[in-house]
């Protein structure tokens, strides 16, 4: 009994210390960002790695999610003769929730895990240590460009996911099921608000998610035990922790932003 209590206490302290380290890590990351003004080329390379290379999965997933929303929405609305609201349903669910959340989850799986593995392996193979011995600080040189690139890429990917999803919904609803195209867009425009929906949902949520996803990914990589087992463990933890953090934060943000409805 006493032992398990002590175990629990140790676990809690351990977690707390980890959180503290993570925050210090974030601070160091943010401080290193200014370096990128001098070396924008580093950013381009990382934007390619986390942004451009994530595009295929984002495009395909966005299209399919939008098409499913169109089908499901139609099946439910057709009973009330309200299929003209289909555009609203598709757009609002994508803009407020599915776009930011699914993009962040896909990003964690596609790019976050890769970031963790890359940084972890760089540590395991002493690349970071040798960089330090060459008097080059890995924070501005290696970590900051990845962080900033990720933080830029996630909102852009979210915008693309959402837009493609709405097009997918349009394809199913208008092209396939024969909903009136005019009312599809008109109803959508009447109900979707630029600041309250697109601003809060796509822009703010995705920015927060992007920050968290990249923070976790880089921290896990940097903290990983420098062995193949440690790196694989860290990669798993990146995906799990990011998913939990994104879903939890999504609830919080939704309650804050859309609470009045």
């Amino acid at each position: 009994m006493m032992a398990s209590l002590a175990e629990l206490g140790r676990f809690a302290l351990d977690r707390l210390a980890r959180l503290g380290r993570a925050n210090l890590f974030l601070l160091q990351l943010l401080r290193a960002l200014s370096f990128l003004f001098r070396r924008p080329g580093l950013l381009v390379k990382q934007l390619h790695a986390v942004g451009v290379l994530s595009l295929p999965i984002i495009l395909v997933s966005g299209l399919f999610v939008g098409m499913v929303l169109g089908l499901q929405g139609y099946a439910n609305l057709v009973d009330f003769g309200a299929t003209s609201s289909l555009g609203t349903v598709v757009a609002l669910s994508l803009i407020r929730e599915l776009g930011p959340v699914l993009t962040a989850l896909l990003y964690a799986g596609r790019a976050g895990s890769a970031l963790t593995a890359e940084i972890g392996l760089m540590r395991a193979t002493e690349q970071l240590a040798s960089m330090q011995m060459m008097a080059v600080d890995p924070f501005p040189r290696v970590l900051a460009p990845r962080f900033l690139a990720g933080c830029i890429a996630v909102p852009l990917l979210t915008g693309i996911f959402t837009a493609v999803g709405i097009l997918g919904g349009y394809l199913v609803a208008v092209v396939q099921l024969g909903v009136d195209g005019g009312s599809f867009w008109a109803q959508m425009q009447a109900k979707v608000q630029l600041l309250a929906d697109v601003g809060n949902g796509v822009l703010i949520k995705s920015t927060v998610f992007g920050l968290v996803a990249n923070w976790i990914a880089l921290f896990e990589g940097y903290q990983a035990q420098p062995t193949s087992e440690g790196v694989s463990l860290a990669t798993t933890r990146t995906v799990v922790d990011t998913s939990l953090a994104v879903l939890g934060l999504d609830f919080l943000l939704t309650a804050l932003m859309f609470g009045e409805w």
Binding site: Q127, A129, M134
Partner: peptide, 18 residues
């Protein structure tokens, strides 16, 4: 870091940037 600029280190594993 200033001091390290005057040191060259050859790591046991090489530690090249992959």
């Amino acid at each position: 870091y200033q001091l390290r600029k005057r040191m060259g280190v050859l790591f046991q594993s090489g530690a090249l940037f992959t």
